[in-house]
Amino acid sequence: MIEIGQAEFIGNIKKALNRKDSCKQTLEDIIQTVPNSDDLKLLEKIKGRDNKIHAALFNRLAENGKSLNMVVTMKKDAQSAAASIARIAAQKNSEWGDKKTVVAWDHPLVRSLELSTHLQACNIPVHYPDLKSGSNQLKKFSTQAADSFIGITSADFCIAQTATLTMKTRVGQPRCVSLLPSIHIAVIKPGQILSDLKELYTLLKWDSDEQTEGITDCMTFITGPSKTADIEATLVNGAHGPKELYVFVLNE
């Protein structure tokens, strides 16, 4: 066992690279630190999209989602999205807990669905992370998520090219809601659909709001429901994460 610290570890690498001690290069010298004209044009393009372009992006997203067993549908408003969620909740069975429960993000778009009202009819409680209480309350939410059969989130963006949802971790928007329940439903607006990953990375790198926030302690990309092909290369959905994934786009 050879125990060395960071300086010696990096020193070895410098030696291997034949790097002179006088070399004072830092990361800033090797990465792009200011947007070029193409980056700025792309940012403009993304911001300047109208309804027609969003509709075209939606169609592409829905098409690409299909082959991944991901259901992408347009909903005319929050009411109709909530009604769809209630229908799914009534039809599907609970996988883990004794009774059906739903967990959801504390997010304006998700709150606008008024899920508790819609799910009351079938007697299904909806749990949100309780932000005002202490850490015990937060732990309790994780347990609730583990027992739930549906998790409702929004997302930061959804990429049409690959049918990928992206989400940063924020207070009130825990990771487990898109992970532990058997069914994950994400609710977004048409303006959140991007064409491809290049647009996403351009936004993450150069958009001022994204820059300020950074990519947080955990940013996740989700493409389709959980899947495995580890037994005789047979595709099975629902290995560890959700078995089903729905994206509802609220066109209001």
């Binding site: 990429i159 690959t162 990519i215 302690d217 955990c218 940013m219 990309f221 989700i222 493409t223």
Partner: peptide, 14 residues
């Protein structure tokens, strides 16, 4: 075209 899950992890939960 893209893996099912990609996560960027940069430290403990805040």
């Amino acid at each position: 075209k893209m893996a099912g899950y990609v996560s960027y992890i940069g430290g403990p939960a805040r």
